[in-house]
Amino acid sequence: MPDTPGRTALRDVAETPDALVPTSPAGEVATSKPDLRDFLPGIEPDRVVDDWGRSERFSALFDKTLVDFYYHLWFRCTIEGLENVPDDGPALLVSNHSGALPPDAMMIMKALRDEHPKHRDVRVLVEHFFKGYPGFSMLLPKIGGVAAHPANVHRLLHDERRLVLVFPEGAKGTEKLYKDRYRLRRFGRGGFVEAAMRAGAPIVPIAVVGAEESQPVFAQLGLLKKLTGLAYTPLTPTFPHFGALAALMYLPAKFTIRFLPPVRTDDMGEEPWEDKGLVQTVSHDIRATIQEELFDMVGKRRSVWFG
């Protein structure tokens, strides 16, 4: 809905005792011609949607209900090293990925929104194929998902100076089986490092423990995948027998999210992204950092459920 002077004018009208005038039948309306658009029914009449399609109202609703429940009661998230996330300016957050339908992204977003001193808002990079799925295509942009395209990352980091969360393992991370838990897969082709270098944004590695146990994958059902055409069809404690509901059925594992010291990319010389060797080295170093941290955290953990 375009923001026009008429809307504010109407609000002024609404504060006066004559506020009932706009709701009266059309005949009387024609005399004063107020802007009636605020009175139109709508699912979200006053939502704020940004250029990326993120709906302030919808994401707040989602955050206050479902995510809040999982964050505080179900996963009982413990957050460490939040001071490693800058107070302002861009940063690329890089995390390990796990679980059939990963809850880790929502938990990291929630942690930064609620517990970071500046309450920072995070955009999550999601695969392009989600645009083709009905429902997901609509929901993901509304809660802050952005398709993982280098141009999008650059715009978010460089032009809009936001926090961007990326899972470089991608689908390989969510596909991995329970027996391979906390073993990081290949970090893509280092595209995330290149994007951070171009934007001059620091990279903040994140290690998440708990997500692997919240929705363990025992096997990949190849036949079902072929029959349904879904992106992946894991065998989990709840899928496929609960169908789509399984997406919200997690085991109550204890989550620990640790933000690690940032890696600067603006002191690597002129156009460091042209040096593919350097890009691969940085990517590999970040992967190794997260991997070591994960082994350390899992080793010190006494219980999967109580931490």
Partner: peptide, 12 residues
């Protein structure tokens, strides 16, 4: 296209 960036600049 599905894998397009969210915004196109003139150079793209």
């Amino acid at each position: 296209e599905q894998d397009d960036p969210a915004f196109f600049t003139e150079a793209m």
